[in-house]
Simulated assay, not measured.
Amino acid sequence: MSSAERIDWIDFGKGLTVLMVVFGHVVLGLFESNRFESSETALLFIVQVFYLFHIPVFFALSGFFFKPILDLKCYFKYMKYKTIALGIPYIFYSIVQFILQSIGGSTVRNPASFSELLGIFHTPLGVSWYLYVLWWIYATLGVLTLWIKNHNYLLTVTIIAYGVSMIVPVKIYIVQKLLLWSFFFILGYWLRKSELTKFLEKHWKLIVSSTVLVIAIFMLFWELSKPDFYISYDTPGLLGLIFPISVFLAFASYPIMNRTNKFGSYFRRLGKDSIIIYLLHAPIVSVTRIFLLKLGIDNVFLHICIGLCAGWFGSTLVIYLTSKIPYSDFVFYPVKYLKK
C-alpha cells in the first residue's frame, strides 16, 4: 500500500466515521429528549452500536500519522501549531453553542451558562470535548516521546493507562480522558508503524466477519442486561474492552470500501473537512429536533431522517460555502492563513 493510498483511505475513514457521529447524535438527542418513550429501547440500542464505533475510530485515525517529538524546541513549535489549529475551532464552536443554547432557552436539554462558557479551558462544552482532549493528547504524548520513541513501548504505556481508566477511574476530568483515549490515538499510530494495516487489509474478510461477530455477541448480552444508558465515554469500566474491536474493524474495512468509485470519492472529499461537519452538525441537529417538536411532529422515523439530512447536508453546505468565500474557513483552518 503506497503512502498516497493510505492518506486516501484515512480521508475516506474520517468522512464515513463523521457520518456515523452525526447519526449517533441524532438518535441520542431523541433518546435523551424523553419524548419517545415507546421507542426508547430501540433508540438506546442504536446509540450504543454507533457509540461503540465512532469516537474510538476517530481517535485512532487522528493518531495514524503521529510522530515522536525530537527535542524540546520541536515540541514547543509543535504545540504552538496544535494550539492554533485546535484552539480556534474549539473557541468558535463553544461560542456558537452558547449563543444557540441561550436563544433556545428552556427548550434546550443541557443549556450552558455564561460561567460555563468562560470555563471551557478546563471543561469543554458539547462535542468540542474531542478537540479539547485531542489537544491534551498531543501535549502529553509529545512530552512522553521526548524519552520514548519506540511505538511498541508507547502502546504498552497507553494500554496500562487504558486499564487504569477502566478499573480505577480518576475523578479529574482531563486526566481520566487522557488515560482512556490516548490508547486509541496510539493504537492508530502503532497500526501504521507495525505495518499491521497491511495484514488487516489482506485478511479483511476474516477480520471484518470476526469483529462483527464479537460486537454482535456483545450487543446481545448488553441488551439482555437491560441497560438504561450507553457505555460511558468517561468511565466505561470493563465494558470498555469492546471499544478497540471497532478500531480493527474500521482499519480492515475502510481501505477496501475506499476503493469503490463514487462512494469512496464522496467520503474521501468530505473526510478532508470532517472537522467542519463534526463541529457544525451538533447545533444543526439540536435546532432541527426542537423545531420538529414545536411543529408537533412526534414520529421517531421522521425525526431520524430529517435530523440526519439536516445535520449532514447543512454541514456540507457550509463546506461548499467556505470553499467559495475567501477566508471564511479561518475558524476551522486558522493555520492555513497564519502561514501566509
Rank of each mutant, 00 (worst) to 15 (best):
L280I: 04
F199Y: 12
T123C: 03
S210C: 08
N261T: 07
Y138N: 02
Y327G: 06
A252M: 04
R259G: 15
V285M: 06
S286D: 03
E32V: 11
Y78K: 10
L72G: 00
V96W: 12
R35N: 14
F330M: 01
I306Y: 08
V26E: 08
S209P: 00
L117K: 01
Y138M: 04
P227I: 01
F31N: 02
A216H: 03
V300R: 00
K171W: 13
C309T: 09
T316I: 15
L117I: 07
T123D: 09
L134H: 12
S246Q: 11
S106Y: 13
K336W: 06
I120W: 11
I172M: 03
L280H: 05
F121C: 05
V27W: 04
P56A: 06
F199P: 05
M20L: 15
L125N: 04
Y337P: 04
Y153L: 11
R259P: 15
V22T: 11
V21C: 12
I174S: 08
D329Y: 04
L125M: 13
L213V: 14
A282V: 02
S232T: 03
V168F: 15
M1V: 15
I256C: 11
V49F: 09
V21L: 15
I99R: 12
L302G: 03
V212T: 10
L187I: 05
W222P: 10
F183D: 14
L131F: 03
S3D: 15
L117D: 08
Y189A: 15
K324E: 14
S115V: 07
L146P: 08
Y78G: 01
H281T: 05
F114W: 13
N261E: 14
I276P: 07
F263A: 11
L118S: 06
M1G: 14
K77T: 13
A250D: 07
P334D: 08
W222K: 01
Y132T: 00
P283I: 00
L317C: 05
T156L: 15
V175D: 06
I207C: 07
V331T: 05
I276Y: 15
I186W: 10
L180Y: 08
K272C: 09
P56D: 09
V168P: 00
V168D: 05
V18S: 02
P68C: 04
P227M: 03
K149T: 02
V285Y: 05
N261F: 14
V247W: 03
I46C: 14
L28P: 07
G307S: 05
L317W: 10
E37A: 07
V127Q: 06
S328Y: 09
T288V: 02
P169C: 06
P244A: 11
I306C: 12
I207D: 00
C309W: 01
K171S: 10
F98V: 02
P111F: 03
I276M: 15
K339Y: 05
M20K: 06
I10D: 09
K226L: 09
Y81K: 14
V164M: 05
L141K: 00
E223P: 00
I7R: 15
C305G: 12
Q176N: 14
I99Y: 12
V335D: 06
R268G: 09
R268W: 06
I10Q: 07
G296W: 07
E195I: 03
N258I: 00
D329E: 10
I174T: 14
Y233I: 10
M166N: 09
F98I: 09
G105S: 08
T107P: 02
V287R: 02
G188I: 03
T145H: 00
P326Q: 05
Y320S: 04
I297K: 01
